[in-house]
Amino acid sequence: MKSNYKPIFTIAIVSITVIVSLFVAYQISGSLFGKSRVIYLADYGGLTVESLKKFELWRLVVSQLIHVHQKHMIYNALSIAFLCSIIERKIGFWYVFFIWLFAGGIGTVFSTQFGTTPWNTGSGASQAALGFAGFGLFLFLFKFKRDYLLLCAVIFSILPAMYLDIKTTGYPKPGHSLSFAFGILMAAYFFFQQFKRSQSIEKS
């Protein structure tokens, strides 16, 4: 990518996440930085299995914008801003969009399987952040081995998230783990496509 490429998707999704999450927090708690109780999040786009059975697919997007704790939202937003801006400059808009949509969406759906109603409402951008972390780690290991800024961004996204998971549940949350693995798979696909393209150029 060109050095002057602007990470438009990163800027947009981080801005929208902050605005929507603060708005929902205010609607639920009366404070921009108040706690948005899980039992109310389904009314604002939180994801449940029942909602998917009704084909409310829009929740796959909106659920990633809302959070229970706004401090957690700020950390997620910073993680995506730091890591996704680097990745988007390297690979462009479409891959980062699909990572955010599918790694985030699938991880959020999976996370709803480990709670009881009404506390099994999926929400938050941490699944997408871990998807980007998996993608970024693969890129660092196999394509951009000396890009230590990318490595720092990956570590910034992974370590605090894993610490909070282990502190609260004793193990990495399944939704986070699945999103991380999905990000790695998407990076492997990206790497394979790059390899095929380089091979075709050499043959031509």
Rank of each mutant, 00 (worst) to 15 (best):
K2M: 08
N4R: 12
K6S: 07
I11L: 14
V14Y: 00
S15V: 13
I19F: 12
F23L: 13
Y26G: 15
Y26K: 15
S31C: 03
F33V: 11
F33H: 04
K35M: 02
K35R: 14
R37N: 07
R37T: 14
D43M: 06
G45N: 09
L47Y: 12
K54F: 00
E56K: 15
W58G: 15
V68R: 12
I74M: 12
N76R: 07
I80D: 00
I80A: 04
L83Q: 09
C84A: 14
C84L: 09
E88C: 06
K90S: 14
K90D: 11
K90W: 07
I91E: 10
G92S: 03
F93G: 02
F93P: 01
W94I: 05
Y95G: 01
I99F: 02
I99V: 12
W100G: 05
F102R: 04
F102I: 13
G104Y: 01
G104F: 01
G105L: 03
I106N: 01
T108G: 10
V109D: 02
V109F: 07
F110I: 14
S111F: 06
G115A: 14
G115C: 12
S123W: 08
A129P: 10
L130Q: 09
F135N: 04
L139S: 05
F142E: 09
K143N: 11
R146I: 08
L149V: 13
L151K: 09
C152I: 10
A153C: 07
V154L: 03
S157P: 08
S157D: 02
S157R: 04
K167Y: 10
K167M: 09
T168R: 14
P172C: 04
F180A: 00
F180M: 00
A181Q: 04
Y189R: 10
Y189G: 02
F190M: 09
F192S: 11
Q193T: 06
E202R: 09
K203Q: 09
